[in-house]
């Protein structure tokens, strides 16, 4: 009973922290106040200060995390609504996503190999450009560490969100398709959030890229691991 109460407490704490940081973010709109980043920082500090282990926190935290599965299924709805955009630009969209997913996975594996990291860490870095639920599942299927994979997904997301626009303009990637596919393929939901600032077309392209690269990444992940390791 005490255990369940504790779990309910941690689940509530997670939800409450998210809603509070979301209110602050919506008011000030500063990148560093991003609700995921801010909530993670607050919860991490609270847990470390209170000397609570991650396993104890996850008795309730996992209740919130379980919702990721259905959320991925729900991504079929925005993709279905953008199907016209997808089907009229099918070849550019698909070729860009295939290139990005392949280069992202291969470079992640090669760089980590170069610095002689363990195989478990290499497999954890591999799915970093995929949306969190898929990246975690790919990492766990391959023998990586799901929770650490989620951390790398956040690093990739923030890289795209904060530094992506400079990289894109430096490379003269200035079309809606190029920007959207670049951001969505490499930086998933956070890239898509940045794409919304360019416009509707970029945003649609980016969410298509995020969804399709998740599907493609789930298929290519085992192949990339098998080829490169």
């Amino acid at each position: 009973m005490e255990f369940n109460l504790l779990a309910a407490f941690f689940a509530t704490l997670t939800v409450a922290t998210y809603f509070l940081t979301n209110i602050v973010y919506l008011r000030y709109r500063k990148t560093l106040l991003n609700p995921v980043l801010a909530s993670t920082a607050i919860l991490a500090i609270v847990l470390v200060m209170a000397n609570v282990s991650y396993d104890t926190y996850m008795t309730g935290g996992s209740w919130v995390g379980t919702l990721l599965g259905p959320a991925v299924v729900a991504l079929a709805i925005p993709l279905y609504k953008q199907r016209d955009l997808l089907f009229t630009n099918l070849i550019p969209v698909i070729s860009g996503i295939v290139a990005g997913v392949t280069v992202g996975m291969a470079s992640g594996v090669l760089f980590t190999q170069l610095f002689r990291f363990s195989e478990q860490l290499i497999l954890t870095v591999l799915p970093k450009s995929l949306t969190t639920p898929v990246a975690m599942q790919v990492a766990s299927n391959l023998g990586g560490i799901p929770s650490l994979a989620a951390v790398f997904v956040m690093v990739a997301g923030f890289t795209g969100y904060i530094l992506g626009p400079s990289l894109l303009s430096w490379l003269h990637i200035d079309s809606a398709i190029g920007r959207g596919i670049g951001l969505g393929t490499s930086a998933h939901g956070m890239g898509t959030a940045k794409a919304f600032e360019y416009g509707q077309q970029e945003a649609s392209m980016s969410s298509v890229a995020m969804t399709l690269s998740a599907v493609l990444g789930a298929l290519l992940g085992p192949i990339a691991a098998w080829l490169l390791l």
């Binding site: 630009n89 070849i91 550019p92 969209v93 070729s95 860009g96 996503i97 290139a99 990005g100 997913v101 392949t102 280069v103 992202g104 470079s107 992640g108 760089f111 980590t112 610095f115 990291f117 860490l121 870095v125 970093k128 450009s129 790398f152 690093v155 990739a156 890289t159 795209g160 530094l163 992506g164 990289l167 894109l168 490379l171 990637i173 200035d174 079309s175 398709i177 190029g178 920007r179 596919i181 670049g182 951001l183 969505g184 393929t185 490499s186 930086a187 890239g191 890229a209």
Partner: peptide
């Protein structure tokens, strides 16, 4: 040593974005 994984992930993200963006833009043009 693991702190190196952060710049590794960032560099790899840049390469993924550049290749996805460039290939799709080129194909569309």
């Amino acid at each position: 040593k693991g702190i190196l994984l952060i710049p590794i992930v960032m560099a790899s993200t840049f390469l993924a974005m550049a290749s996805a963006g460039w290939v799709s833009q080129y194909a569309a043009k």
